[in-house]
């Protein structure tokens, strides 16, 4: 059978939030700019990046995602996320290792209601005619710089975004422990470009993914979309295969 992850869920929770409740109302963020840069990663550590519930994709992948909301219910904010591509049983998923958000109110909502592993920082999403980029600095050090180069328009329906599996400490049946929280946003895309993917800087230690190394670009996309963050419908025990460890709420 396919390779399972072997990361200790407890080791994946440095930035994982504690979710007091999973009873989250859906929320729509209008006209969000979304940059996604997908790379193949070094396969040597692919199993160490995800818990036993998940399988690495073949080949193993990472998603760098930059979002910018200029208005909407959470106000203006920019968010950078690094995820590891994976499978929960047969479903395509991405496991965020860490996310950085510019604005406290938005960060709090995303952490408490959807379990994003967010810290507050200064990610910058730049939109140019020849490229779009997401950059995150930690002091004077650039810990992430990823770009889409030479954008060309594609069909709004050509894109697929995979759902997230967010590791979070969840209280359930009187016990607080790590769970994988399935977050499957809906994207209503109004404009989409595709281009060459390029990662110029990536500090795996900062992103809480030791030894994660992007090695081969796949593609980058840049869209404008209304994103609806959903109600939480499923959680999964990170120690069990997703096919048996998934719980419907």
């Amino acid at each position: 059978m396919p390779i399972n992850g072997n990361a200790d869920p407890g080791q994946l929770t440095q930035y994982a939030p504690t979710m007091a409740s999973l009873d989250t109302e859906a929320l729509t963020l209008p006209n969000v700019k979304v940059l996604q840069v997908i790379y193949e990663i070094d396969d040597a550590v692919m199993a160490e990046l995800i818990p036993p519930a998940l399988h690495p994709t073949i080949p193993p992948t990472m998603h760098v995602i930059g979002l910018r909301a200029d208005d909407g219910p959470l106000g203006a904010f920019t968010l950078a996320i690094v995820r590891v591509g994976c499978r929960a049983a047969v479903r395509p998923r991405g496991l965020p290792t860490r996310a950085v958000c510019t604005q406290g109110e938005a960060a709090t909502a995303l952490v408490e209601r959807w379990g994003f592993p967010i810290t507050v920082g200064e990610p910058v999403l730049r939109e140019r005619y020849d490229r779009q980029s997401i950059e995150v600095n930690d002091g004077n050090v650039t810990v992430l710089s990823a770009q889409l180069i030479d954008p060309v328009p594609i069909g709004n329906g050509d894109l697929l975004y995979t759902a997230g599996m967010h590791i979070a400490n969840v209280e359930r049946d009187g016990e607080t422990k790590p769970w994988l929280v399935q977050v499957d946003p809906e994207f209503e895309v109004s404009r989409a470009d595709r281009g060459t993917a390029q990662i110029d800087a990536f500090d795996s230690g900062y992103w809480d993914a030791p030894d994660l190394r992007p090695v081969y670009p796949i593609v980058a996309s840049y869209t404008t979309a209304n994103i609806t963050l959903p109600r939480i419908r499923y959680i999964c025990d990170p120690l069990q295969p997703a096919i048996t460890g998934t719980v419907a709420l």
Binding site: M1, P2, I38, H55, T57, I58, P59, T61, G85, R87, A89, V90, R91, P92, I154, D158, L159, L160, T162, A192, R194, I218, V219, S221
Partner: peptide
């Protein structure tokens, strides 16, 4: 189950 572990083009390379 095995088939689902692979990366279909459409999942990572919109075209």
């Amino acid at each position: 189950y095995l088939a689902a572990q692979l990366l279909p083009v459409r999942e990572v390379h919109p075209t």
